[in-house]
Nucleic acid binder design. Structure first.
Lengths: 263, 263
DNA sequence: GTGTTTCGTTACGTCCCATAACACTAATGA
DNA sequence: TCATTAGTGTTATGGGACGTAACGAAACAC
C-alpha cells in the first residue's frame, strides 16, 4: 500500500550531495530508503520497535532474501534506523530552537523541550529505538556511528547553555554544593556530551543542564510510552509546560522573552 | 487458562497463606515459579526484555510444549512478569521509605528515589518491562491486573505526599499558576494515581508530585538503559542525589532530617 | 485394583531469519 | 555489435521458534 515516496522521513532534503551518482547508485539509494521507510511504517503501524524482514519485503512487493543485497542482516538495518533517528531528533530540536534568537535562552530551552516532546510523541517507536532499552536481539555493532549520532543530537541542547553563558544571562542554578562529576569536561573523552570547543562550565551548570535533559526526558518518555494516558491529553500539555518552566528556573535559565509560546 | 491461583507473585516469603494446598497444587505452583524465575534469569543474562519460550524449557530440562500447561502463551507469562515487577518495585520502594519516620517526608522521598533507582539499575530488564515501551508482540490482554499493579506501585510515592500534607510540613511548591489537570483527583476514575482516600491536593502539589516522579524516572531510566554510561559511575550517584534534592525542593518537600543519607 | 486428572513427551504446521544456487537485467568494453 | 560482468531479483533449503494435537506415564481418587 505504499509503493510511493511514502514519507521520506530521513531522505527529505538531500539536494545533490553526490552529483556523480550513476543510475544504478541512485536506484540502489532509493531502494535503501524505501526499505528504511517501510520498516518505519511497519513499526508505526504495529506500535513496536520490532519488525520482520519478511514483512518489509512483502510490503515492497519483493521477497525477503532480496533485502540481504542491501543490508547484511536485521541488525545492520536497525543500526541505520538508529543513526537516522538520532539525526532526525537532533534536527527537529535544532530547527525549533533556532526559530528564536540566541539571546533568549529561556525561550530556546522551551522550544527545545517542546520539539523533543513533540518528536517523541509523533515517533514514539523511533524514540524508544534510540533512548529506550536496547532492542531485543540487538547489540550495537557499529558502535562508532551510533555514538557519533547520539553526540550530535545532544549537542543541540548543550549549545543553548553555552550561548547563555557567553551572553551572561545564565543565573546561578539552584544546584548548591553540586558534586563535580569527574569527567565533566575533560577534553578528549569521546562521550556524547563532550564538545570540542568546550568553554568553562561550572559543576553546578553542568548538572543543571543534565537536570534539564533528564527531567525533560522523564516526562516525555513516560508520555510517549503511554504511561501517562490516565491524564487527559490537554492537561498533559499544560503539565509538561509547567514542569519545564520549573526545571528551567532551577537551571538558572531566564524566563522566555515572549510569553506567547504555545505552538 | 487461568484455572488456578497461579499468581504466587514473587513467591519469596509467603508463609502459608493457602494451607489447603494439595501436593499437586504445590508442585504446580513451584513449577510456575521456576518458569518465571528462569524467564527473569534469561532476560538478565541476555539483557533484553525478550525471551524465548523454548529457551526457558531447555533451561529447565523440559521441552517447550510442556510450558503451555502453565501459561496459555508467551503473552500470559509476560503479563505475569509485569504484574510481579510492579509489585516488586512497589514493595522495594515502600520498604526503603518506611525505614524513615513519617514526619520526615524529605528523607522519605530521598529514600523512595534511591530505592527506585537502585531497583531500576539492578533489574533494568524488568524496569523496562513495566515502564518502557511495550514489548514487541505484546498487547496487555489482562488490562485490569496490570493497571491495578501499576496503581499499587505508584501509591507508594503518593502516600508520602499525603503524609506530608497531613503533617503540614509541605511548603508551597514552586509551581506557580500551574494549570489544573482536570482529572486531578476526580474520584472513581480508575487511573493509577487515584487513591480511594484522596484528601484535597492542590493543583500545584499534584504537579509537584508528578514532577518528582517524572524527573526521578528520567534520570533513572536513562541510566538503567546505559545512556549515561559516559558519566563515571560514582559521579552518577552524586549527580542523581543532587538532582533529587533540587526536585524535592521545587516540590515543596522539606530537606531530609538526617543529613547522612547515602546508603 | 480401575478410572481420571495432570504432566510430560513426540510429531506436526506455520512463520521467520539467513544462506545457497540459479536467472534476468543493464552497464561495460573489445 | 555482442560477450562479459556486476547487480538485483528469484526459488530452494536449513535451522529455530511458537503453538497445537495426539499420545504415554505417573499421581491421585475411589
Amino acid at each position: 500500500m505504499a509503493d510511493e515516496p511514502i514519507d521520506a522521513t530521513v531522505a527529505d532534503d538531500r539536494p545533490a550531495e553526490q552529483p556523480a551518482m550513476s543510475r544504478r547508485e541512485r536506484a540502489r539509494a532509493a531502494t535503501v530508503d524505501e526499505i528504511k521507510n517501510t520498516a518505519l511504517q511497519l513499526m508505526r503501524e504495529q506500535g513496536t520497535t520490532d519488525f520482520r524482514f519478511s514483512d518489509i519485503a512483502r510490503h515492497m512487493g519483493m521477497t525477503a532474501p532480496a533485502l540481504y543485497r542491501y543490508f547484511a542482516d536485521r541488525d545492520e538495518l536497525l543500526t541505520q534506523l538508529i543513526v537516522d533517528a538520532f539525526a532526525d531528533l537532533g534536527a527537529a530540536v535544532a530547527e525549533e530552537r533556532d526559530r528564536l534568537p540566541k539571546d533568549d535562552p529561556g525561550g530556546r530551552f522551551f522550544a527545545v523541550a517542546q520539539a523533543y516532546r513533540r518528536w517523541a510523541l509523533g515517533e514514539s517507536q523511533r524514540f524508544a529505538l534510540i533512548l529506550g532499552m536496547p532492542v531485543p536481539g540487538y547489540a550495537a555493532p557499529d558502535e562508532g556511528s551510533v555514538t557519533e549520532a547520539a553526540r550530535g543530537a545532544m549537542i543541540e541542547l548543550k549549545s543553548l547553555f553555552f550561548d547563555a553563558i557567553e551572553l551572561g544571562v545564565l543565573r546561578e542554578p539552584r544546584f548548591r554544593d553540586a558534586p563535580d562529576p569527574v569527567c565533566r569536561f575533560t577534553a578528549g573523552r569521546d562521550d556524547p556530551m563532550q564538545p570540542d570547543d568546550a568553554p568553562a562550565l561550572s559543576a553546578e551548570t553542568f548538572q543543571a543542564m543534565l537536570h534539564c535533559w533528564t527531567a525533560l526526558h522523564g516526562f516525555t518518555s513516560l508520555e510517549a510510552y503511554g504511561h501517562l494516558d490516565w491524564l487527559p491529553a490537554d492537561a498533559r500539555e499544560g503539565i509538561f509546560e509547567t514542569n519545564m518552566r520549573v526545571v528551567a528556573d532551577a537551571a538558572g535559565l531566564p524566563p522566555p522573552a515572549n510569553a506567547a509560546n504555545s505552538a
